[in-house]
Nucleic acid binder design. Structure first.
Length: 277
DNA sequence: CATTACCTGCAA
DNA sequence: TTGCAGGTAATG
């Protein structure tokens, strides 16, 4: 499940391969809806000859800037994969788009479940996206104080609030479960009941689990791969995600972990370390 | 605010 | 054969 560390790993891998390259054409696969209904032939004519000028990431969105203030926006959702292959390489199993570049390589977008999207955005579109999303959790502006303010009027479970991209951009199910465990906060806690001290600790743990995820080039629990098709290794660093169902012992106290559903998502936690108040 | 639809491979 | 996996938009 690509969350912030996985998306950033993809961006870091692609940046040196894309910037300065020009698009030659765009070739559709078996799922034309991948561009949200935009005609791919039309997109190909619009983008032919245009260079990538920069890559950016905002939350879980990849932004590949072209000239003329236009941007290719890619969201991998659940199972989207970007790879850079040679023109002569055969199509990937679930390939829905190939952006052919001027050096004989292709940026291929594949997605087993057809949730991911590749769209075209103007500078104004990007500005809207930027304001709709919450702060970047790895940025210096994301502090315990800011988190405390973001939670102040929220009555949903803390886990639901952390998953809300309008509140904080980039967290998903894996890193939320991990951060809450390390901060010893129960995922069902009402968000606005966190004390300033708890918010400070939670902000710190959010940064920590994301940075560790980034350092390990992402979590490849299922389908995540980097640009070279390599798995990340952060699944070895996880201590609660996915472990509640089997009742695995808590790595801190040995109590069997539990699984429940919060915000419609499978949620693992330690009933001893992460007490409700 | 919570729940459901969108998808499809895979485990039970 | 059923249901689970979950990011986001849409719906209630």
């Amino acid at each position: 499940m690509p969350e912030l560390p996985e998306v950033e790993t993809v961006r870091l891998g692609l940046d040196p391969l894309l910037v300065g390259r020009k698009i030659e054409r765009i070739v559709p696969g078996n799922f034309p809806g991948v561009m949200n209904g935009l005609d791919i032939e039309l997109a190909s004519r619009m983008l032919a000859g245009r260079p990538f000028t920069a890559t950016r990431r905002r939350g879980k969105y990849l932004l590949f800037d072209l000239d003329e203030s236009e941007t290719i926006v890619i969201h991998l959702r659940m199972t989207g994969v970007l790879t850079l292959l040679q023109r002569s390489d055969p199509p990937e199993r679930f390939q829905h788009l190939s952006i052919e570049l001027d050096n004989g390589t292709d940026l291929r977008f594949s997605d087993q479940r057809k949730f991911g999207r590749v769209t075209l955005a103007s500078a104004a579109d990007i500005a809207v996206l930027m304001t709709k999303l919450g702060p970047e959790p790895l940025s210096p502006e994301f502090t315990g104080n800011l988190l405390s303010e973001l939670l102040a009027r929220r009555t949903a479970p803390i886990k639901a609030v952390l998953l809300d991209q309008h509140t904080i951009a980039g967290l998903g199910n894996i890193y939320v479960d991990e951060a809450l465990f390390h901060a010893r906060i129960h995922p069902a806690r009402t968000a606005n009941t966190l004390t300033p001290v708890e918010s400070e600790l939670l902000a710190e743990k959010i940064k920590q689990v994301l940075q560790v995820g980034l350092d390990h080039r992402g979590t490849s629990f299922s389908s995540f791969r980097d640009v070279y098709g390599e798995k990340g290794s952060n699944q070895d660093q996880l201590v609660v995600y996915g472990r509640g169902a089997g009742g695995f012992p808590c790595s801190r106290c040995g109590t069997p972990l539990q699984r429940t559903i919060i915000a419609g998502r499978g949620t693992s936690f330690c009933p001893e370390c992460q007490l409700l108040p």
